[in-house]
Design a protein around this nucleic acid. Structure first.
Lengths: 124, 124
DNA sequence: TTATTTGCAAATCATTTGCCCGAAG
DNA sequence: CTTCGGGCAAATGATTTGCAAATAA
């Protein structure tokens, strides 16, 4: 289905080796250290493919540029509104909300996204 | 502080008269019916001003174009991934998550955003 | 009058796409 | 070979901005 390529392998490696939830341009800069002539378009194309195959998670964030996450489990996120730090919270995800809403409205709920925004310890 | 203008009043009126969480371009089309020569830039400028003064809410949505909401209270949203329908849920907002995270991490939490995605009744 | 707001167009930012070429199978 | 992935640059879509003219106070 999809061929292997040096660029795709390197992009995946970069994402798997950080927990900073990087954006495409940061990933691009890191990959350039190994493949100086890589293009940003290639980075976007491969990030998309890797997300579609379930190897990484595309993190769509309200009002912010997209980020990428090696952690593909369902989890909450915290974002510092001053320094931009973003991290996973290991709070257990409350799925009872989904059932409660589904029961009330008749909707089928597939996904729940919870974002907490505030100030991290350093920025307070 | 801010002057009144026909364009701002009309934009506010349009947002207040719908519960569809419209995007800027839809609001622009509606306002054009009353002020045909209005420009999209003016619509954006006024929506921003109205949000800053607290009269409306700018809804930043993960992976989607911004929408505007006449309901400025803290509330959850549901979005249908097929037809794009977006609506307010009248589920009470659970603020205990904020305290729990704050206690665990030492972060100061200002805002919580909860988005449920799925299929509405018509689209299932 | 004079400070804001408008209309318009150009600028920006993140992301996607078209096309032709090089490389993987 | 033949098809997919890569590089590059141009296109896209949403939103913002600069500026001169229009308008509210």
């Amino acid at each position: 289905m999809s061929r292997k390529s040096k660029q795709r392998d390197t992009i995946l490696k970069v994402v798997m080796n950080t927990d900073t939830h990087p954006r495409a341009d940061w990933i691009y800069e890191q990959v350039k250290k190994e493949i100086p002539h890589i293009s940003l378009g290639t980075v976007y194309r491969n990030l998309k493919a890797l997300a579609e195959s379930g190897e990484i998670l595309q993190l769509e964030i309200a009002g912010e540029t997209r980020r990428y996450d090696r952690n593909t489990d369902s989890h909450y996120h915290f974002r510092c509104r001053k320094c931009g730090l973003m991290l996973d919270l290991d709070e257990p995800v409350d799925h009872t909300i989904e059932d409660r809403i589904a029961g009330k409205t008749g909707f089928k709920i597939n996904r729940q996204r919870v974002e907490l925004t505030g100030l991290c310890r350093e920025c307070q």
